[in-house]
Design a binder for these strands. Structure first.
Length: 801
RNA sequence: GCAGGUAUGUCGGAAUGGCAGACGAGGCAGACUCAAAAUCUGUUGUAGGCAACUACGUGUGGGUUCAAGUCCCACUACCUGCACCA
């Protein structure tokens, strides 16, 4: 009996079936494959079609791995702490715990529409005390190892979010979340010593199968450089000023020195004549905003009135202050070589400071220098005993030379700073520390974890730099676990990145109340083989997770030190003209109506068909008609052939193996958009044939299963199979059966196609040329061929004069 | 400024150096229908021609090659990231 394609009925049927009999079972014998999505934060806005894309990609890949004999770990959870969740609660006038739970329920319902093979027994939620107990535990371990510490310092402060931010959360001087200009605020902060892992975080990138773009971004963020620290005596004083330089080869060219206005010695270097100007400048710099500093790079500065001594040649050089020198990089002071550094050159020109060239350019000294010569190539000049050396060689040796001379030492520096880890907000993991007037900082005893948030009426941010928790006396006041005397709790909470820095470890042992993950399960099921998500986490989440994974490896919790072997960044789905989908732009496309009207299978296919998965794609609703029509035609083809018992022909066998080969190759190459067009192509080809045999239809259904699981399952069943498609193995193409016997190939004259011939693919050159000459007889009339090229199965080219 | 990415019909996009535009959307024409929708068939890069056909055509300008969207050199535009890190 023929049936028409009723996507709703089919999808309801299989949803119920999979609810009862999940297809992804761990029978203990199969090798594991861990395919992970970046877990969402449960926003109140729900999912749009852009969110679907990554989940569809990871599900296709998971199902493909299942059919290749793997037990696939494919979990889903909720990153529910943090600013967005709290802001949403404030906006709707609810408790964060309440609104978060509602949002999770809502998003879970929407995610289920995707029909991905998530293992819901592994579901986790970062705000669940059973989960964040271990987030707090990791913090305590970090503290015990000296990797969590407190520091009073000016930190990045978002006046709109009313909280401190990590460096990674500041983009162009603005808050990564809300876009407000970030200011500085002096606060005592918890810091995590990510800098202690800088070398490993950088070096281990080589081990990872990640997009080069992301590796590069992390490399630049960590920003390692090699150079030297050199000590410059101060004329007439005991102290020395240490500078960091990557170009110690240019030491003889240092004609002045610049200190950051925040440098400890800055004010004290002023003389009576310069004191007023120096103090004014220090104040000016302190009040200058980040944004202004980033946008307006015109050099400003003031001469302190003091001089340093260049330790190489004993010459006095003036000491200046300028905010182009950063206080928290290197030593906060630099030696300036205007001849060989653009910024120093600009400064020297503006303030009329001498320029001494120490590297010959093209073998000579430049007359009337108009820009710095920044290459480390050329012979040293004006450099005393270093004259005649090659600067490239000297650049490497100079750190050791200054070390021997006792005026400096080799030094490596990083751009990455320690991670500002406290937030002055309510909705986060409380930092499990108690401040005791007697004992100092004491960790909340491990057996008392989790330390949960108090239930409160008001949790809005205070804006004063104090967490709202500070106002809750009943929570703040406690007894010191060490001495039992009155003490106070730490009131800052952890940033939203805390839970996501390790959640992927927890999925495989989600109910463990003894350990964050058992070592046995970690060894068996971790790490993540494939991680799929947006590129927006290139330095934030992905750097923090690598840091925590390395730490947990170091303390023996897990046996690997990189969390994600392979990373795939899917492109963003945008609205018309590449505009990001957002509620305020009014261009959000919800999947709900599309699922109802076209079905889950159609939407899944269209998410892939819309463009190459790694590139951004503009959403166009009309396109989904195309994939729906395709599925209907496939369905009809099955209906037309299923009861006919069509015999296999050589052509059908060949087509079937070509189909397997095409789909598998494109899938392996992650070219998912062309997988879908491949299915369409073969559907068109098969429908033009006299009939399609059962084996070919079955093969088609198996190949389609990871992409459109419902219709594939239904067809598989209709063809008389009792098993699940996902218990079948992925078809293997017989390469020898793929080849066509004859093929139509193009015939060119002088590289331009002038006709075609149909010849055997293994035809000899003579046969091929004979056929070509015959086909193009009229055009070759009276011409002499000077060269004949024949590439079997591809092309014939006849070159004539 | 530095680094990376992208550029192909009306649109989304295909093309291991080998017939550019697969596949789809949209358009046009036709079939079915009282009619419309749906469906099916044909057609659809540009210019010229009744036609067979011819010329041109993958951001721009050069080059390598029998043959270039693809390789090399030099540019342009847009996007992303970083940006006074000494």
């Amino acid at each position: 009996m023929k049936r028409s394609y009723d996507h709703n009925a089919i999808e309801e049927k299989w949803t119920a079936e999979w609810e009862k009999h999940p297809v992804n079972q761990n029978d203990g014998s199969k090798p594991k494959y861990y395919c992970l999505d970046m877990f969402p934060y449960p926003s109140g806005n729900g999912l749009h079609v852009g969110h679907w894309r990554g989940y569809v990609i990871s599900d296709v890949w998971s199902r493909y791995k299942m059919m290749n004999g793997h037990y696939v770990i494919h979990p889903m959870g909720w990153d529910a702490f943090g600013l967005p969740a709290e802001n949403y609660a404030i906006k709707t006038g609810k408790q964060p715990a309440e609104s978060t739970a509602e949002n999770i329920a809502n998003i879970k319902k929407q995610i289920k529409q995707i029909a991905a093979v998530y293992d819901w027994d592994m579901e986790l939620n970062t705000t669940d005390p059973g989960f964040f107990r271990w987030t707090q535990w990791i913090f305590e371990k970090l503290y015990e190892k000296g990797l969590a510490y407190q520091k009073e310092m000016p930190i990045n402060w978002c006046p709109s979010c009313k909280t401190g931010l990590a460096n990674e959360e500041v983009v162009d001087g603005k808050c990564e979340r809300c876009g407000s200009p970030v200011t500085k605020k002096d606060l005592k902060q918890w810091m995590l010593k990510i800098t202690a892992y800088a070398d490993r975080l950088l070096d281990d990138l080589d081990k990872l199968d990640w997009p080069e773009k992301v590796k590069k971004m992390q490399t630049e963020w960590i920003g390692r450089s090699y150079g030297a620290e050199v000590d410059f005596p101060i004329e007439g004083r005991e102290e020395k000023i240490t500078v960091y330089t990557t170009r110690p080869d240019t030491l003889f060219g240092a004609t002045f020195m610049v200190l950051a206005p925040e440098h400890a010695l800055a004010a004290s270097l002023a003389t009576d004549e310069t004191r007023k100007a120096v103090e004014d400048y220090i104040e000016y710099a302190a009040n200058r905003s980040n944004v202004d500093r980033l946008q307006n790079k015109e050099k400003t500065g003031v001469f302190t009135g003091s001089y340093a001594v260049n330790p190489m040649n004993g010459k006095n050089i003036p000491i200046w202050l300028s905010d182009y020198v950063l206080a928290d990089y290197g030593t906060g002071a630099i030696m300036c070589v205007p001849a060989h550094d653009d910024r120093d050159f600009e400064f020297a020109t503006k303030f009329d400071i001498p320029v001494i060239q120490v590297i010959a350019k093209d073998g000579k000294e430049i007359e009337n220098m108009t820009e710095a010569y920044t290459e480390a190539s050329g012979t040293m000049i004006n450099s005393g005993e270093w004259n005649g050396m090659e600067s490239a060689v000297l650049k490497k040796e100079a750190p050791h030379i200054v070390e021997k001379m006792g005026i400096g030492r080799a030094k490596k520096n990083f751009k990455i700073r320690d991670w500002v880890f406290s937030r002055q907000r309510y909705w986060g993991e409380p930092i499990p520390v108690i401040h005791c007037p007697e004992c100092g900082d004491v960790l909340v005893p491990e057996e008392e974890l989790p330390l949960t948030l108090p239930e409160v009426e008001h949790y809005e941010p205070t804006g004063t730099g104090e967490s709202p928790l500070a106002a809750i006396d009943s929570w703040v006041n406690c007894k010191c676990p060490k001495c039992g005397k009155d003490a106070k709790r730490e009131t800052n909470t952890m940033p939203q990145w805390a839970g996501s820095s390790w959640y992927f470890l927890r999925y495989v042992d989600v109910d463990n109340d003894k350990e964050l993950v058992s070592r046995e399960k970690a060894d068996k099921y971790l790490p993540v083989d494939m991680y799929i998500g947006g590129v927006e986490h290139a330095v934030l989440h992905l750097l923090y997770s690598r840091f925590w994974t390395k730490f947990l490896y170091d303390i023996g919790v897990i046996g690997f030190d990189e969390p994600f072997k392979k990373l795939f960044n899917q492109g963003m789905i945008t609205g018309k003209n590449g505009i990001k989908m957002s509620k305020s732009k009014g261009n959000v496309v919800s999947p709900d109506d599309l699922v109802r009207d076209y079905g889950c299978d159609s939407l899944r296919l269209y998410e892939l068909f819309v463009g190459p998965p790694e590139l951004d794609s503009e959403w166009d609703d009309r396109g989904i008609d195309g994939v729906y029509r395709f599925l209907s035609r496939f369905w009809n083809m099955v209906q037309d052939n299923k009861d006919r018992d069509v015999a296999e022909t050589p052509e059908l066998i060949r087509t079937r193996h070509q189909l397997i080969d095409t789909i598998t190759q494109r899938l392996e190459a992650f070219s998912l958009n062309t997988v879908v067009s491949g299915f369409m192509e073969f559907n068109n080809r098969l429908s033009k044939m006299e009939g399609v045999d059962r084996k070919t239809l079955e093969t088609y259904a198996l190949l389609l299963a990871p992409f459109a699981p419902h219709i594939a399952s239904e067809v598989w069943e209709e063809l008389g199979n009792k098993t699940s498609v996902f218990d079948e193995s992925w078809p293997v193409a017989d390469k020898s059966a793929i080849k066509d016997d004859t093929k139509e190939i193009g015939v060119q004259i002088n590289g331009k196609v002038r006709g075609t011939v149909k010849i055997a693919v293994d035809a000899s050159k003579d046969e091929a040329m004979a056929a070509a000459r015959e086909a193009l007889a009229d055009k070759l009339e009276g011409k002499t061929a000077v060269k004949e090229i024949y590439v079997p199965g591809k092309i014939i080219n006849i070159v004539i004069k």
